[in-house]
């Protein structure tokens, strides 16, 4: 039987939305899938060596549980995003949730293929030297080469 394949498009670059691609990719790899992630637009942030710049914002995110209900107007205040980010990080640590770095490292170990979208790398002037090693650059056609043969394709 041929190996199953999972293709993921990762489009988001916030601390919270960085998790699903890496959780699903690492788990699928553990289940024996061959996995490829195509990082495009803000998802490219997930490829940077240093992930400490990733934030989560309560602004425009009404479903995010807050310890105290807060009017939207307050969420624009300086420091709110930093506070929400450090709150989420400490909560994740307390609950035994892996850090993004750790999950990404597990993906790398499991030979998950990571493709950075060339067009958005150019558009946002990302320096590929800031990305972790082993990243390939490619376009939409490169994604479909793998996705077309995949059993599962996810857009995150």
């Amino acid at each position: 039987m041929d190996e199953k394949k999972l293709a993921i498009v990762a489009t988001k670059g916030t601390l919270d939305w960085g998790y699903p691609p890496f959780i699903l990719a690492s788990t699928a790899a553990a289940l024996g899938y061959s996995v490829e992630i195509f990082f495009t637009f803000y998802g490219l942030q997930l490829l940077k060596k240093d992930l400490s710049h990733l934030r989560v914002s309560p602004l425009g995110n009404p479903a995010m549980p807050m310890p105290v209900p807060m009017p939207t107007l307050m969420m624009v205040l300086p420091g709110m995003e930093g506070m929400a980010t450090s709150m989420m990080k400490s909560k994740m640590k307390a609950k035994g949730v892996a850090s993004l770095d750790e999950l990404r490292e597990l993906c790398v170990e499991a030979e998950v293929r990571m493709i950075a979208c060339q067009m958005t790398v150019d558009l946002f002037e990302f320096d590929t030297a800031d990305f972790i090693d082993g990243i390939e650059l490619g376009g939409a056609a490169a994604f479909f080469e793998f996705a077309g043969e995949s059993d599962i394709t996810l857009f995150i």
């Binding site: 959780i23 690492s26 788990t27 553990a30 035994g96 949730v97 892996a98 597990l106």
Partner: peptide, 13 residues
Amino acid sequence: RGLNCPLPILRTK
């Protein structure tokens, strides 16, 4: 113990 999804599975693998 104390680890959350997906770490127990990944460590098991």
